[in-house]
Simulated scan of single mutants.
Amino acid sequence: MRRPTHPRRYPRHPLDEDLRVSRRRLGRPRRNRRRRRIPLLVWLLAILTVEVVAVGLKDPRFNLARIEVQGVEVLTEEQVVRRSGLRPGKNLFQIRLKEARQRLLEVPAVADVTLHRRLPNRVLVRVHERQAMACVAAKNALFTIDATGIAFRKDAKPPRGLPLVTGLETKPLQLGGRIDAERARELREFVEAAAEYPQRGVPRISIDQNGNLCFNSAELGYQVRLGPAVQLKEKLALLAALERSLPDIRDRCQYIDLSCLEAPAWKPKKVALATNDHAGESRPVAPSGETLHGRGGFAQD
């Protein structure tokens, strides 16, 4: 006869059941004590927090006494404090820093700003101003714009060290306003590309309604027509190569047209007329080493 594979079960003794019940009963009070301790600690911490806040709101040592401003160049510290709405004497914990930040962000010259409480009685204001990219001649005035095209400063005359942009005089501009996004992108790309050639000085940039660029500067001495704002780095590199190959181009050239990289062109300055004393006639005089049809291997207009 086959034996069963499952283990044989014996009846439980009544004492074993009583031991299990007693163990459960002994363990319950411990758990209950732990559960009672946790809410008690929470209540104590809550009461302590309320007391600290109440003391902080009433203690004059926490009244705002000083406002520190960092990162301003276009604005003054007084302007920042006035526009923020912060007033000395108010309790530090009652000041609404979010509202003060929102008021400062409405200032055209402010790109971003952060405010921090510094115990016991200070507020630190860190201002990130817009960085000037160019001065734009609009219909109504001159404005300094940043890389995104936002006008954040009104100028009586072009600031030193900034390129002057013309060709946008058809529309008025206001502080906090923005020029056309495409024109701003073209200007930004040109300024970034021209930064590699600081020896040319601060350029005067002209941009037409089709986005064609040309520039000039006192150091350069002639006009450079770049055409559409594409391949600007390549066009300026070609201009540098032409200047190296023609060291006297400043005295000879009226403008260089780099609209097409494959076919650059240039126009010489007006040719002087010399008088033939023997025949009483005038004849054109070409500069030494240059024909009237241009030189240097690129076309003459």
Rank of each mutant, 00 (worst) to 15 (best):
P247C: 15
F215Y: 12
L15V: 09
S217A: 12
F215M: 00
L236V: 07
G85E: 02
V74Y: 09
G149D: 02
I205E: 05
I207W: 01
L40K: 14
V113W: 02
L97V: 02
L40I: 15
P4L: 14
A138Y: 07
C260T: 10
Q300W: 13
L168D: 02
T170K: 01
D180I: 02
E68P: 04
N121W: 03
Q131N: 09
L44E: 11
L40W: 15
R185E: 05
R252D: 01
V127P: 10
Y10N: 07
R204G: 10
S259A: 08
A141I: 08
R250W: 02
K154G: 04
P264N: 09
V127G: 01
G89P: 14
D16Q: 07
V191Y: 07
A109I: 07
R101I: 08
T275F: 15
P247Y: 14
I95K: 03
P159A: 11
A237C: 00
E51R: 13
S84R: 06
A274K: 13
E169R: 07
R183Q: 09
S288G: 03
L258T: 10
K233A: 13
A134T: 05
S22T: 15
L57K: 06
A279S: 14
A181V: 05
L115T: 08
S22K: 14
L15Y: 03
L45D: 11
Q199G: 12
Q254F: 11
S288L: 09
L104T: 04
F152W: 06
P158M: 12
R178Y: 02
T76M: 04
Y222S: 06
V113H: 03
G227M: 12
A240E: 13
A184E: 02
P120S: 06
R126C: 08
V53K: 03
Q209D: 15
R160C: 00
P264S: 10
L124N: 14
V123R: 06
E78S: 15
P14G: 05
A272I: 02
P108S: 02
S288Y: 06
A265G: 06
V230W: 01
I145A: 03
E99D: 10
L261V: 07
V69C: 09
H278Y: 10
I95W: 01
E196P: 04
L48C: 12
R178D: 00
G27I: 11
A299Q: 13
H278S: 14
L213Y: 10
P264K: 08
S217I: 08
R250C: 05
P287L: 15
R118C: 04
I205S: 03
R61S: 08
A274Y: 03
G294R: 09
N212V: 01
A151S: 05
R244C: 05
E219D: 14
A132R: 12
D59Y: 04
